[in-house]
Design a protein around this nucleic acid. Structure first.
Lengths: 132, 132
DNA sequence: CTAGGACCTACAGTGCGCTGGAGGTCAAGC
DNA sequence: GCTTGACCTCCAGCGCACTGTAGGTCCTAG
């Protein structure tokens, strides 16, 4: 069983030690992180795996509070898998919606880029930013 | 020429009047918004058009400070179109990268969803959240 | 002629997600 | 045995993007 220090976990997950302590404070770990005799956190590989998933959830816009809800369900133990699934599915839908939104933005932005490029080809003139 | 009140512009853009005043304070308008005799803002349609583009930029993650940089270039007048284009292209690249990242997240999340669904089909058991 | 509502400025407050400082413990290396 | 460095707790502070409040103006409708 791997015994990882907070520094090693920070290294492995790309999170700062500040963030790791903060996450623990916010209850974002599915288990209590044990301490050694000196009071230092001792993480295991499953904690790192969870943090990597957690990173994906955060990157994709899941608020800390929602991650906590998920973690709370996990900590409650077996029996609420339907709730956990619903939460994940909802987030999956949110992410898909966000991707669609970004594509829409991209269309608008790209149109603007093209209008500038066209403008360039013709030499500078008027009416650049005003029209959407 | 349309003469729109702040309330009308809020309505048209989905922004709050607070946000509109804030944006003006932060220098996010390519022109100074004029006032009527009573000191009230008088917007035109081009301002609304700009705000709609601005909304896309914000939705797609462009920070206020970067939008301001773009606006500053526009306010400088003709001659820096290359800089404006570079800024937009950079953002376009950022958005594409963000979309890719979200797709990667989606893969991980979807895998998790499927693992829960599979779990469901089999009846509840162990090893749900630990494995990424 | 007064009450309401939309607007104004200036500035303080909020929520989120960390980040950092103060003051202290502990084990290892010189 | 002393310094260094990684760690600890507690709590304050920060950056961003607004949101809201206080105190005031102005116009319109009853």
């Amino acid at each position: 069983m791997s015994r990882l220090s907070i520094g090693a976990v920070a290294e492995a997950t790309g999170l700062s030690v500040y963030a790791l302590r903060y996450f623990e404070h916010e209850g974002l770990f599915p288990r209590d992180i044990p301490r050694d005799t000196g009071g230092r956190r001792v993480y295991g590989q499953p904690d790192v795996d969870w943090l990597l998933l957690c990173n994906r959830l955060r990157e994709s816009g899941m608020p800390i509070a929602v991650i906590k809800r998920f973690v709370d369900l996990v900590r409650e133990g077996a029996g609420n898998e339907a709730d956990r699934l619903a939460l994940l599915r909802q987030h999956e839908a949110d992410v898909r919606a966000k991707i669609d939104e970004l594509h829409a933005c991209l269309t608008v932005i790209h149109r603007k880029v093209v209008s500038y490029e066209k403008h360039f080809a013709e030499g500078t003139a008027t009416g650049l930013w005003e029209t959407s």
